[in-house]
Write a protein that binds this DNA or RNA. Structure first.
Lengths: 328, 328
DNA sequence: AACATGTGTGGAATCGATTACATGTCCTTT
DNA sequence: AAAGGACATGTAATCGATTCCACACATGTT
């Protein structure tokens, strides 16, 4: 491996001069050319570990995901990457596989790797997490969860869920079932459920325990929850099912189809997430587009801004778009 | 930021000893405890830039993707991550956005970041690329393309495509249209097309130019290609369409549905990729599962093995599974 | 008793860059 | 003609770790 010293020796200059070639200081045209020629020939690239050690900047930003292989996550990462790549940053990816201790572990790890900033897609909020973030003392952005004291890019879960519920109501549905997720997830678990419950309450519609189930984001869980809802409802069946994610909604549709329900005639279905799939299902799925990629871009831009100068912690709420399709 | 020197001073030992605590050398129980206590209190974590500079190892492996937000890519990354995370490696992600010069650029970049190895999902093969890989002189794995002189995890594109074509033929189809991609992609572009063409030839079935179109992986291109095929075929319509990716197959189905074709009665459709979606479409899509995640895992394992000891360059061909569903 | 061996610790070089400071030219300006 | 500034280059300290070598001490071996 060639180093700056090798180049310096070959070009008969000090390594300072070589360094200056790469960091635009005063270097005469002659010398610059001579050095560049040697650089080309040897294929020398400066060691970024050394540079990072010296400058305390790595040109890397850390991203912590709950799970890589979901459409939401990959869209967000794609948005982040698009923005940071332009500024010659790379992404160091970590995946918690939904274990929340790992979020904290990875924050520490990324810190010791001298990343210049961190973007976290959190799935929960707890005191240790906040403490770890504060301790890291790095530019930090949270996407999807409102972490106190941390700049956050938020989805409007409450209103999105309200709107979906509302849409179902305007389509004459009065018996609306709900498939949610655990409430340790404040955004997807709590906010979306609140939106659902409050809207029902507002219209004086029945809230029945038998119509409310809790899944785990997976298609299968949507399927199982729907089965339970149908089973437990006896003769008082709901006429619509609102699942808080598209995947669970797809599971619901699957079960309903198997049981011979016609969608939306016998049972309407709606989700959230605007998965690619939602558009091509039969019937196409009513859902909410959260603009994940844009959220990633925005997060990246704010992170870069924070790296240049300290900013006050802010909260940004993304817009969303209700997509009415044939499943309702 | 606390450093090893701070810890050493606070514990009244030399920094050598502190280092030894983390790298299991001789340290007495007493001293070890004293140091660990201070480490806990200060939240000290060793600077990995410094460590990497000194040891020439970074604990990072570089991954070069053509596009992050595709199901294939995210599955592969997920597989890679699962394996390397266990060994405490992280992934440095780069996305070429389908520009092939960037593959080379990123190889250099990853090299200068001292990654311990690189996994590339290539979309093409060219001499410069091979040269860059050789020059990098790092443990290297290619997934999906057979790069000469590079350990490669390959999909069996030729036989997969043959099998799909065969399946269509056993279902009495004699007029089979084809939606491919550009041939600068040897695997998806060439091999799959060869599988299709050779199988038709084997059965003495007609190969008509009007039935062959070239898309660009997108759903929209599948839609457009199908439109062209239908338009250009006049009265001699094919009875089946084989698209080399699920997304293009979905576009095909979309167009056919719009035009009132019944699938598979009027026109059968098949894809490759086993996208999540394929299972939930109506009708469900016949496709080929490439086990992308397993490919990622395998790539990661081979990379780790190469990092421990130099290995001969090998070629591994993944198995695949033809999934016969209702669209055929 | 002399010597080898195992254990525990510190000193100092080293990895490959950046950068503050010093030095030396050569012009321009007053 | 002296001074000041712009330009060009070099010297050496520094970033935070690892690691070779040396040394000290305790214990075991012959």
């Amino acid at each position: 491996m060639t180093t700056i010293n090798d180049i310096a020796k070959m070009a008969n200059v000090s390594r300072t001069t070589v360094s200056r070639v790469f960091n635009n200081g005063y270097v005469s045209e002659d010398v610059r050319k001579r050095i560049m020629k040697i650089v080309e020939e040897t294929g020398y690239t400066p060691s970024l570990s050394a540079k990072s050690l010296r400058t305390k900047k790595s040109g890397v930003i850390g991203v912590i995901l709950p799970k890589i292989s979901t459409e939401t996550a990959s869209r967000v990462v794609s948005g982040i990457n698009e923005v940071v790549a332009k500024e010659n940053f790379q992404i160091l990816l970590t995946d918690t596989e939904l274990q929340k201790e790992k979020e904290i572990e990875y924050i520490r790890l990324l810190k010791s790797r001298h990343v210049d900033g961190i973007i976290l897609l959190a799935t929960n909020i707890n005191a240790d997490l906040i403490k770890a973030i504060t301790a890291a003392d790095l530019p930090f952005i949270s996407i999807g969860q409102d972490l106190p004291g941390v700049t956050s890019i938020l989805y409007d879960d409450y209103h999105a869920a309200s709107d979906v519920t509302n849409l179902l109501i305007t389509h004459q549905h009065t018996k609306i079932a709900f498939i949610g997720v655990g409430e340790e997830d404040p955004s997807v678990g709590r906010q979306r459920k609140m939106g659902y419950l409050d809207t029902l309450a507002k219209f004086n519609l029945p809230i029945k325990e038998e119509w409310i189930e809790e899944g785990d984001f997976s298609i299968e869980s949507g399927y199982e929850c729907t089965k339970k809802i149908i089973k437990n409802s006896g003769t008082d069946l709901p006429s619509a099912i609102f699942a808080v994610t598209d995947r669970m909604a797809i599971g619901a549709m699957e079960y309903l189809r198997e049981q011979g329900f016609s969608i939306p005639k016998d049972m309407a279905v709606a989700g959230i997430g605007a998965s690619t799939m939602s558009k091509y299902l039969t019937p196409s799925l009513t859902t909410v587009d959260y603009f994940n990629k844009e959220a990633g871009e925005k997060a990246a831009r704010h992170l870069l801004a924070q790296m240049i100068q300290k900013k006050d912690k802010e909260k940004f709420t993304q817009t969303y778009r209700l997509i009415k399709r044939d499943s309702v």
